[in-house]
Amino acid sequence: MSTSTDIPAFNTDELDFDDFQFDESTNENLDMSHSIPERDLSFFKNIPVTVTLEVASKDIALGDLMKAGEGSVIELDKLNGEPLDVKVNGSLMGHAEVVVVNEKYGLRLIDVVDSALDSAIQ
């Protein structure tokens, strides 16, 4: 046998926001017209991220993919010579081309998507 305590249900009809009184200092704190001082963002420079160079992609039905085997060709959505997508943690940062530096692959940024920089700064 279990014992339960009766907890009264919360009734939203009992709320009356007209009863709340705000003093002037509360309104001053909500004023966003003044400039906010810049923050030191150097902390974020040491956070690791994953940079991915995506050649191309293709949406394909799982059944069609299951039929693929050695030697199968799946046509992708980019043309030869078209810039490749650079993604940071899965989000598009910009476009690049592949280069070779000291016998390793690298990328040369062609353009950077403005929204990627804007969201990183804010």
Rank of each mutant, 00 (worst) to 15 (best):
R39P: 04
A120I: 03
M32G: 09
I110H: 11
G69F: 01
S72C: 02
Q122V: 09
M93K: 00
A116F: 00
F43C: 02
N80K: 07
V51A: 11
S35H: 13
E54R: 06
M93G: 00
L109T: 06
I74W: 03
V49K: 06
D59A: 11
G90E: 05
E14L: 10
L107R: 03
G106L: 00
L117E: 08
A61W: 06
D77H: 05
E38F: 10
L65Q: 10
L84V: 01
V113W: 01
V86A: 01
S4R: 15
F17N: 11
L62E: 13
S91Y: 09
F43A: 05
D16N: 14
V88W: 03
D118L: 04
E54V: 05
A56M: 05
V113D: 06
N29M: 11
N80P: 11
E24Q: 15
A9S: 13
S119V: 13
G106H: 03
T26P: 03
V112C: 03
P37G: 11
D85C: 03
L79T: 08
V112I: 13
T5D: 10
T50D: 10
M66R: 13
S57D: 12
F44P: 00
L76H: 07
K87V: 01
R108Q: 06
R39Q: 12
G81N: 07
Q21D: 10
S35V: 11
M1H: 13
K67Q: 15
L53A: 01
G63K: 15
F17R: 08
E54H: 02
L53R: 01
F43P: 02
S2E: 15
D6H: 12
D13P: 06
I60T: 11
S33T: 10
I110G: 07
E97T: 06
P37T: 10
S91G: 09
I47K: 04
A120D: 05
L117W: 03
A68N: 14
S57V: 02
D31K: 04
D23N: 12
D19W: 00
L62M: 13
F17I: 11
F20W: 10
D19Q: 14
F17S: 12
K67W: 05
T5I: 12
I47W: 02
Q122M: 07
E75A: 08
A68Y: 08
L30T: 08
L107A: 07
L79K: 13
L15N: 09
I121D: 08
T12P: 11
S57Q: 09
E14T: 15
D40L: 03
E103P: 04
D31P: 00
P8V: 12
T50L: 08
D31C: 00
V55N: 08
I60P: 02
F17Y: 15
S42I: 00
L109Y: 03
I121T: 14
V100Y: 00
I110E: 09
V99K: 05
S72N: 05
L109W: 00
K45D: 02
E38C: 08
L84I: 02
D6M: 13
F10E: 10
E24R: 14
Y105F: 15
D18I: 02
N27F: 15
V49Y: 05
T5V: 09
K104N: 12
G106Y: 03
N29F: 12
F43D: 05
D111P: 07
R39I: 07
D118Y: 03
M1V: 11
S72V: 01
K58Q: 12
S115H: 08
I7M: 11
T3D: 15
N102K: 13
E70T: 14
S119N: 15
G94M: 01
A116Y: 02
A120F: 07
A56T: 11
P8S: 14
F43Q: 06
